[in-house]
Computed example of a mutant assay.
Amino acid sequence: MIHELLIVVAVAAVLVILWRQHRVSFVDELGIEGDLIWIDEGRHTKPFFNGAFKVFGKPDALYRTRAGVVAVEYKSRNGPVFDSDVTQAFCAALAARGEGYRVTQVLIKTSAVQKSFKLPTSDKALFDRIQPAVFNARQAKFGYAVPSRPEIKKCRSCGFRGNCDHSAA
């Protein structure tokens, strides 16, 4: 009986060690010391919603750290982080806050760069940072014309460049 119990304890210890090694190697790649607590698994993953500010969004992943929750946004391009990426990530963080996640930081990673942003502690202050973009998105949703800011580097990779009157490319 004791012999079998020792075997179970030894197997459990080996599994814990292997799990921690795998987790740490993945976390080290991003530079986040924490535990993965949520991941976007695609279209069937419901977005978060912040009822106070009426915004939806979903980060690609959430990590719990000592300082709070870090929202991660991956971009597959081999280029810089754009202002629109920051706005999208901030909106997703605000939406996650509406569902109880205390998001304190956003990390945006492209193939070329990785940028981290500390978020305001107040939801109102965070919303104020993205409010102009939220307003424009709501206007566009209801069919109103919204300002465009074409840039050659963005237009080259835009999926709508063939249909756009404002294309800089």
Rank of each mutant, 00 (worst) to 15 (best):
G34A: 06
T65D: 01
P150D: 09
V9S: 10
I32W: 07
T65L: 08
F90L: 14
G98E: 05
F53R: 00
C91V: 14
C155D: 03
G159N: 11
L62E: 00
A92L: 04
L107M: 11
R102S: 15
A67K: 06
I39F: 13
G31I: 01
G98D: 00
A92H: 01
S148F: 09
H166N: 12
G100S: 09
A67F: 04
G162H: 07
K141F: 10
E33W: 10
V70A: 04
C155A: 01
W38K: 04
G68V: 03
V113E: 12
L126Y: 00
A52P: 00
A145W: 08
V11K: 09
I37C: 01
V146Q: 07
A133C: 04
S167D: 15
Q114G: 10
F82W: 10
F142M: 13
V27A: 13
G34D: 06
C164V: 09
T121L: 14
V72N: 03
I152F: 09
V27Q: 08
E73S: 04
L94E: 07
T121F: 06
F49G: 05
F48A: 01
L36G: 03
I39E: 10
K118C: 06
T104K: 11
D83I: 11
D128P: 06
L94V: 01
V106I: 11
S148N: 12
Y101G: 03
C91D: 13
P120A: 04
I17Q: 02
A96D: 08
S122G: 11
G42E: 04
N163P: 04
E73T: 02
I130P: 01
I130S: 00
V55G: 00
Q131W: 09
A52K: 14
A168N: 03
V8C: 11
Y101R: 03
H3L: 10
L62K: 00
K118R: 09
F135W: 06
I17T: 11
H166W: 08
A12S: 15
R43C: 13
N78M: 06
V16C: 13
R149T: 14
K75S: 01
R23T: 13
K46C: 06
L62S: 01
K75Y: 05
G51W: 02
S157L: 13
A145E: 13
L6Y: 13
T45C: 09
R97M: 11
I152S: 10
G79H: 04
L5Q: 11
V103N: 00
K46N: 08
G42M: 04
Q105Y: 12
F142D: 09
R64E: 12
